[in-house]
Design a protein around this nucleic acid. Structure first.
Lengths: 206, 206
DNA sequence: GCCGGGATTGACCCGTCAGTCAATCGTCAA
DNA sequence: TTGACGATTGACTGACGGGTCAATCCCGGC
């Protein structure tokens, strides 16, 4: 049973994480100070270090929290008996909805983590690769079942698929694409249509 | 007429730029010191500031040098009277060959500029958007000519296309995809096949 | 009421670096 | 040969910011 104290502590931790999202999104991981996060959270500087070992660990936590949810979603989808195109649509939908729900968090994950992967070591990289592998597995299965062309390696297909989604988000983040409810839904069908139209057997669409 | 002195000066400037590529690629823009660049170039610390106003300007220069070449290539292609698919293939080919020729430079451009909204993306957003716009124009023309489906907005198509390429490069950069001459050529045809297979009218491939 | 310990505070320490600058070197033109 | 000027050097400075820590607060149990 969580005491009021424990609940309160968890709240403070969350408060800091949420503040960090806003600060990282706005000024960038390297462009902000830990004191910015503390100020944004309305909390003393030192408290950040009570809950996290370092500034890096704050970013780590944000990334892992969200990425693990996505991995779970993809894994769950993988098990289902639905057409591959639907699986890819569901993944796209999840990512786009994640953006719709919390654009700042997605901005941080897309913009800061890739660069962090460079310096932070392999932890993130393995997690990211795991997502690619899961998508590749979906493609590979689709090929075995004769639903997708087998002339492209699943690994490449996974990159193209994920890259298309991520670039659309990047477009929204950097104002290179119009933003809005309609655009979000349109983007989902469009990405899947583009990628699958190229991956599926021609006879399937003809 | 360039004197020996002027040539020498130009060489030193290049020396610093090339060294910066290696250092940025290896430790990241934020993770390295200006002295690292000077050391790598075998040059005194202060000389970097003789040729560049700031650390930022070194990265700016590297990015603009390469990006402008790419914009020129795309513009030149746009004018030619060849099928859209060939145009997209040529763009893909240019980018992949850029990576083949200087993977470290491409890593720096992708990791430190293209994906860095807050720091450098902001400065170069217009340049980056210009590339998207040029690609979108190619798609739009293809739609007008009845070669591509007109059910997807050219802007989205441009993002998906560029995103697929960039993600493949990212895969090479972070060892998520196998690297090699065969893979490079394979990647070109694959990206175009994937994207155009989805963008072209079904009747064109059926 | 009173104690133990986790939560919270924020001033401070200290390493790190971007950028400066005064001095020296090397080249060229007259 | 010489003087001017750009190229080159690297020690130095000043700001900045991550992380520490001793003090304080507050809750929950006894």
């Amino acid at each position: 049973m969580a005491t009021a104290r424990e609940t309160h502590a968890a709240d403070k931790r969350r408060l800091i994480l949420d503040a960090a999202v806003r600060v990282f999104a706005h000024r960038g991981f390297n462009g902000c100070r830990v004191s910015d996060i503390a100020d944004e959270a309305g909390v003393a500087y030192g408290l950040v270090y009570h809950y996290f070992r370092s500034k890096d660990e704050v970013l780590d936590t944000l990334f892992l929290e969200r990425w693990n949810v996505m991995l779970d979603v993809i894994r769950e989808l993988d098990g289902r008996d639905v057409p591959p195109r639907e699986k890819l649509y569901a993944i796209t939908s999840f990512i786009v909805d994640s953006y719709r729900h919390d654009p700042e968090l997605m901005k941080v994950i897309i913009v800061e983590v890739t660069r962090a992967a460079n310096s932070f070591g392999q932890t993130h990289l393995d997690k990211i690769r795991e997502a690619y592998a899961l998508i590749a597995a979906i493609v590979a299965r689709a090929q075995t079942e004769g639903r997708f062309k087998d002339t492209v390696s699943p690994a490449f297909a996974a990159m193209a698929f994920y890259g298309a989604i991520e670039q659309v988000l990047t477009g929204w983040i950097f104002d290179a694409l119009p933003v809005g409810e309609d655009e979000y839904e349109q983007a989902k069908t469009f990405v899947v249509e583009t990628i699958c139209g190229g991956l599926e057997l021609v006879s399937a669409t003809a």
